[in-house]
Design a protein around this nucleic acid. Sequence first.
DNA 1: CTAACGTACAACCAAATGGTTGTATCAATC
DNA 2: GATTGATACAACCATTTGGTTGTACGTTAG
Lengths: 107, 107
Amino acid sequence: MITDAEVDRLFHALADATRRDILRRAVQGEFSVSRLAEAYPMSFAAVQKHVAVLESVGLVTKQRRGRELLVTSDRDVVDRARRALDELAEAWKGRVQRMADLLDEGH
Amino acid sequence: MITDAEVDRLFHALADATRRDILRRAVQGEFSVSRLAEAYPMSFAAVQKHVAVLESVGLVTKQRRGRELLVTSDRDVVDRARRALDELAEAWKGRVQRMADLLDEGH
DNA sequence: CTAACGTACAACCAAATGGTTGTATCAATC
DNA sequence: GATTGATACAACCATTTGGTTGTACGTTAG
C-alpha cells in the first residue's frame, strides 16, 4: 500500500518544472548529472538536489558508468505515468473552463 | 495551453493529504468550510487556507447557500483525474519495486 | 436591531524549499 | 601517484508553506 506521506512526496516531486523536465530527459535516455546540469540556468548542486528528489520517490535511478553517474528512468512505467498525467491535465483544464463559465454567469 | 507554472500549482495542491481528503469530500457532496474544518485536527483558518489552494487551481468551487459557503467539485472531472492518478500510483508502485530489486541485486 | 454564526483576512511563527558556494571524495587518466 | 573530472555533501540564505491567534465583515435568526 502507498501511504499518504508517499503520495505527498510523489506529487511534490512532480510539482517543479525543472524536475519534470529532468524526468522527461531521463525517460528518453541516460544522462550524467553534469550533462543534465548544463541544460538549466542553475548551479550543479541545485540540479543534483532535484535529481535526488526524483530518486527518493523512485521516479529515477542512478547507475555508475566510469566516473559518471547516469540518471535514467523506466520508459514503460513513466510513459504510463505521463499518459495518466495528461489525462489529469485535460480534466483540470475542463474544470478551469467551468469555473470561468460560472464567473461569467455572475454578471 | 496549460503553463508549467500552472502544472506546478496543480501538483502542489495535490501534494497534501488534507487537501486530497477535502477534494474527496467535495466530490461526494457539498460541505461548508466550517463543516469540513470539524473533520481535521487543525484550526478553521488552516482548513480555509487548504480550501483556498484547491480553489485557486480550479479543483474546487464555492457557492453561497444562506450564510454558508458550500465547497463543491465537479464529479465527472475529478473522477477522471482520480482514475488518472490511480494509474500514476500503480506505475509508481512498479517503479519502486524495480528499485528495490536493483538494491537487492547489489548484495 | 441585535446577537450569533460563518467566513475573510492579517500578523505572526517554525519548518521546509530552492537556491547558492565551498570543500571533500572517488574513479580514471596521464 | 598526481591531476582531473564527476559527484557528494555541508553550511548558509531568502522565500514559501502550513500552522496559529485575533479581529473584522456579512448574513441570518430571534
